[in-house]
Design a protein around this nucleic acid. Structure first.
Lengths: 221, 221
DNA sequence: GTCTATAGGCTGATAGAC
DNA sequence: GTCTATCAGCCTATAGAC
C-alpha cells in the first residue's frame, strides 16, 4: 500500500527483467504463501518460518521484504479488501431487484468457491474482534449498507418487493454465501462429498437466490 | 468425559465441602477461563498462562488438572457439543412446519446471544478444518441432517411446504443465525450499535424466520 | 539483494519444596 | 493438592558475511 517509484530506471525495457522484477516476484510468492498459512492457522498460529518455506525462500528474506509478521498480514488483508466491495458489482435503484439480488448472490458464492482462503482469513479477523478491520466495518462497510438500504426501501415503495430490513438481509446473504468457504468442511461432510464440485456451488447459489427472492416477495422472480 | 468415581467418600455429606469440591470448582473455573481465551484467540493464539491468570490460579495448577493445553481445548469442545444438537429441540414429522422451523431458528439465535463464545470456538474449529470435530461432522451431524431431510421431504409431499434441498436449508439457517455470534462485531458496526440489545436479536430471529418460511413456501406462516 | 547464524523472548510443560 | 522455580524448544526478528 506504500507508494513506491516505478521500478524501471534509465535504460531498462519495461516488463523485462530489469530492477524490481525479482522483488515483485518474491513479494507475490510470499503473499501467496501467507494467504495459505493465515487461512489454515489464523494470525497467531501462523509462523514466518512456514510462510518462508511455502514461498521457497529463507526466513530472513521474508523479513527483508515485509519487516514483521503483522506487516505481511496487513498486506494480505489489504489485497483481500480491495475485492471485497467492488468485485460484487453494484446494486442500483434502476436495476431489476430480482436480477440485481441474484447477480449479487451468485458473485458471492463464486467468491467462496474461487477465493476460499481469503474468505477464511476475513472470517478469522472478524471472529477475533476485527483488530485490523474495525475501521473498515465502521466506515466503508456501514456506508455501503446504508446506501444499499436506500435502494431496497425505494424498491419496496415501488411495490417491487416486500419492505424488509436491509441490514439483516445483507447479514443473511453474507453468512449464507460465505459458509460455503468458511465452513467448507462441514458442508462437505454433511453432503458426503470428498470435495465440493461445481454443481454443489451452483446448487447453493440457486437455493440461496430462491429463498431470498421468494422470501422477500420480489416480483417476477 | 472420562468416568470418575462419585466424589463423596464414606462419612461425607453430599453437596458439602468434602473431597472433590475444590477440584470441581477449580476445573470449572479453568474451563470458563479457557472458553473466553479460546474464543478470543483461537487454539494456537491461546496460552495456558492467560487461561491460568483469568482462572485466578497458578499456571502449574492448570497443568495439574488438565495435563496439556489440547486436553483443556477438548474438554471445552466436549462441553459445547453436548448442547449442540439436543438443546435446539426436535424437528418431527408430526410438527407443524411453520412452528417447528420458527422454534428452531429462535433457539439458534438465542444460543448466539447467550453463548457467543461457544459459537466462536466452534466456528474457529471448523474454519481450521475441524481437526477435533471431524468425526462429529461425518457421523452425528450428517445423520441428524439425513433424519431431518426425511421430515422435510414428507412435509413437501403433504403440500405443507415447497420441496427444498434440506441440507442447503440447514446450511443457510446455521449460517444466518450463527453470524450474530461469530460476526457480532460486524453486525454491531453496521447497525451502529455500541452493543447488541435484546431487540436486535429479536429482529434477527423474526427476519430469518420470515425469509425462511416464506422462501420455502410454508403454509400458514 | 541473499542467506547463515543467532539473539532474545515467550511457550508448554515439569520438578520438587511445601 | 498447591505453587515457585525452571527447563527445553520454538518464535519473531536482526546482525553481518557474502
Amino acid at each position: 500500500m506504500t507508494a513506491r517509484p516505478a521500478a524501471s530506471g534509465a535504460g531498462t525495457v519495461p516488463g523485462r527483467p530489469g530492477p524490481g522484477r525479482i522483488r515483485r516476484r518474491n513479494r507475490t510468492r510470499i503473499l501467496g504463501a501467507a494467504e495459505e498459512v493465515f487461512a489454515e492457522k489464523g494470525f497467531d498460529g501462523a509462523t514466518t518460518a512456514e510462510i518462508a518455506e511455502r514461498a521457497g525462500l529463507p526466513k530472513a528474506n521474508v523479513h527483508y521484504y515485509f519487516g514483521t509478521k503483522e506487516a505481511i498480514y496487513r498486506a494480505v488483508i489489504d489485497g483481500i479488501m480491495e475485492l471485497w466491495l467492488e468485485a460484487f458489482g453494484e446494486i442500483d435503484e434502476r436495476d431489476d431487484p430480482a436480477e440485481a439480488l441474484a447477480r449479487y448472490i451468485r458473485a458471492k458464492v463464486s467468491y467462496s468457491r474461487n477465493r476460499p482462503l481469503a474468505s477464511r482469513i476475513f472470517a478469522n479477523e472478524i471472529i477475533r474482534g476485527a483488530p485490523v478491520l474495525r475501521d473498515f466495518l465502521q466506515g466503508e462497510l456501514r456506508a455501503w449498507v446504508d446506501e444499499r438500504a436506500r435502494v431496497l426501501r425505494r424498491w419496496a415503495e415501488l411495490g417491487k418487493m416486500d419492505p424488509v430490513d436491509p441490514a439483516h438481509l445483507f447479514f443473511l446473504i453474507w453468512a449464507a454465501t460465505q459458509t460455503y468457504a468458511d465452513f467448507e468442511v462441514q458442508v462437505r461432510d454433511v453432503l458426503g462429498r470428498e470435495r465440493l464440485r461445481g454443481e454443489d456451488y451452483d446448487a447453493a447459489a440457486d437455493f440461496i437466490t430462491r429463498i431470498v427472492l421468494k422470501g422477500c416477495g420480489v416480483k417476477g422472480a
